[in-house]
Write a protein that binds this DNA or RNA. Structure first.
Lengths: 101, 101
DNA sequence: GGGATATATAACCATATAGATATATTTCTG
DNA sequence: CAGAAATATATCTATATGGTTATATATCCC
């Protein structure tokens, strides 16, 4: 599963958002997502295959934690489009580009 | 069609990449994508619904041009994850955040 | 050991998606 | 006006996706 496919699903983005704050167990994420436990486990499997989460077993619990590194791929995709955007980061980068010249 | 769904499809990212350089006609994009013409028209329809392209009719031709603005949504999604990344932009932003304090 | 708890997997279903081919529509050109 | 060219739409098909319920597996606790 590639990064783009992994983050296109709104519930998975929600799960990532939750784990951004702190590692979570499956049951916690079930409550947050409002889905059945198997559905959440399925999403987590996809996130794990995309390397967006890492798991630490702890007895019968599993702590799922964010690994944001693959999101760099998305960031790199956006890169060449930033010149068409007008947000803060874009202006920052433009400034940097000007400095580079 | 939301922005994420629009850009998850690799062929659509390829089409966006082509239009990033210059507006293109459908036939040109057919050659670039290596798909049937109806398939490309379908992708373009999706990109148009996502507001990622704009069309300018020109006789029997249609010039499709990039509109990168909706990509800001993706950029905003990435925003809170940047602190977990380690690329150039991230360091830039951290620098900015430090300045803000 | 045995029941409760936490999670994963299997099986199934409905819907969405991406592609193809066939055809319609519009515009150009001789 | 007639045929060619450019694009859009209709229809169909195969596969992927996201959800469910049922069940398996592993661990905790009395």
């Amino acid at each position: 599963m590639d990064t783009f496919s992994a983050i296109v699903e709104p519930k998975r983005r929600l799960l990532l958002e939750a784990m951004r704050r702190q590692p979570c167990t499956v049951n916690t994420l079930v409550e947050i997502a409002g889905l059945s436990q198997p559905a959440v486990s399925k999403h987590l499997k996809i996130l794990k295959e995309a390397n967006l989460v890492v798991v630490r077993p702890d007895g019968q619990k599993r702590w799922y934690a964010l690994n944001a590194q693959p999101l760099e791929e998305v960031d790199h995709f956006l890169e060449p489009y930033r010149q068409f955007l007008s947000n803060k980061l874009d202006r920052l980068e433009q400034h940097l580009n000007e400095m580079d010249q």
